Amino acid sequence: MTSKIRFGIIGTNWITEAFIDAAREAEGFELSAVYSRSAETAGVFAAKHKITNTFTDLAEMAASGVIDAVYIASPNSFHAGHAITCMKHGIHVLCEKPIASNAYELRQMIAAAQENGVLLMEALKSTLLPGFKAIQDNVTKLGEVRRYFANYCQYSSRYDAYKAGTVLNAFNPVFSNGSLMDLGIYCIYPLVALFGKPDVIKATGVMLESGVDGEGSLVLQYPSMDAVIMYSKITHSSLPSEIQGENGSIVIDKISEISKVEIQYRNGTVEDISVQADHKSMYYEAAEFIALIKAGRTESSVNTFENSLTTLEIMDEARKQMGLIYPADTAAFK
């Protein structure tokens, strides 16, 4: 493997801009190609980021020999198809969250990765941040954990457009979007990484006329604890998230981008376990992905297949209970 990992980009939106900005801090990152259905869009994006190669045919980019890996930030409903096309050509895949529309699609993606001997990883940034490692390293100080509470409610500027009569991608079920997929996943994935799969899932949500959820809540039952999750794109909250144990609680400033973390013990003492991030938040997923490729690994030990699959299985069940069904679920929910 060369010292540089040549990346192709799929998706030319704001999240891609943020990824490129952060990934350029990672050793071994090289931007080589961009795919867009529109030649004009690809050209403008390539010029802005000094990308040499542009493509309007995804299979052509995957077979071109100018990339080793792709970062996928297309709409959620395209993730599985885009990833499988690339993996069939031996291309490593870093795919934005949620990695697929449902668990059925992800199982197909995992099979393609294994058949072709390539790396597939979900670009869920929060579990790769130094702050999350601090939580993992210190959670035993809480004694018996009894509750996990995660909150991510962020009013979407796109909701204003929605109320004005314009349904953008964020509120369109065709693209497997909505509040659970966009924000709820940030609450669920760390739970799964820390505590595994729950025994019982109960979900409610507020459905919008477009056919996606505006907000929702989950209660998940484990043998000796429960988890309470709140998420929303139509309200805002400043509440922190928390892991409650018999000895005290870990208080997390923002579950989606963990920075300030402290243990508040029952006796009134407070221990700051925050770890300063030295890079932009998306740097860590890029660095992890590149390191895995260079090491010849085909699965992350943090954002594992199991964690991604369990998270999607939870979201699948929650969506069924809410009546939130996507066109992409036709095969999955038979």
Rank of each mutant, 00 (worst) to 15 (best):
residue 210 S to R: 02
residue 60 E to C: 03
residue 146 R to Y: 12
residue 83 A to G: 04
residue 44 V to E: 14
residue 312 L to K: 02
residue 64 S to Q: 04
residue 119 L to C: 00
residue 245 G to W: 01
residue 16 T to H: 09
residue 320 K to L: 15
residue 260 K to C: 06
residue 193 A to R: 09
residue 303 N to E: 10
residue 304 T to F: 10
residue 39 A to I: 04
residue 179 S to L: 06
residue 264 Q to H: 14
residue 314 I to A: 05
residue 163 K to D: 09
residue 175 F to V: 01
residue 24 R to K: 15
residue 87 M to S: 04
residue 206 V to Y: 14
residue 256 S to L: 01
residue 36 S to K: 08
residue 286 A to D: 09
residue 291 A to D: 15
residue 14 W to H: 14
residue 37 R to P: 02
residue 122 E to M: 00
residue 88 K to D: 15
residue 323 G to W: 04
residue 270 V to D: 11
residue 121 M to D: 11
residue 318 A to Y: 07
residue 320 K to G: 09
residue 40 E to N: 10
residue 131 G to K: 04
residue 140 T to V: 10
residue 15 I to N: 09
residue 322 M to C: 13
residue 84 I to D: 05
residue 38 S to L: 06
residue 321 Q to E: 13
residue 92 H to Y: 03
residue 283 Y to Q: 00
residue 76 N to Q: 12
residue 36 S to N: 13
residue 110 I to F: 07
residue 60 E to G: 02
residue 38 S to M: 08
residue 300 S to K: 02
residue 245 G to Q: 05
residue 96 E to H: 11
residue 11 G to S: 10
residue 278 D to V: 01
residue 273 I to F: 04
residue 231 Y to C: 02
residue 88 K to S: 13
residue 139 V to F: 12
residue 89 H to C: 05
residue 312 L to S: 01
residue 99 I to W: 03
residue 8 G to N: 02
residue 155 Y to G: 03
residue 42 A to G: 04
residue 284 Y to H: 04
residue 167 V to D: 03
residue 182 D to N: 15
residue 100 A to F: 04
residue 193 A to G: 05
residue 130 P to W: 13
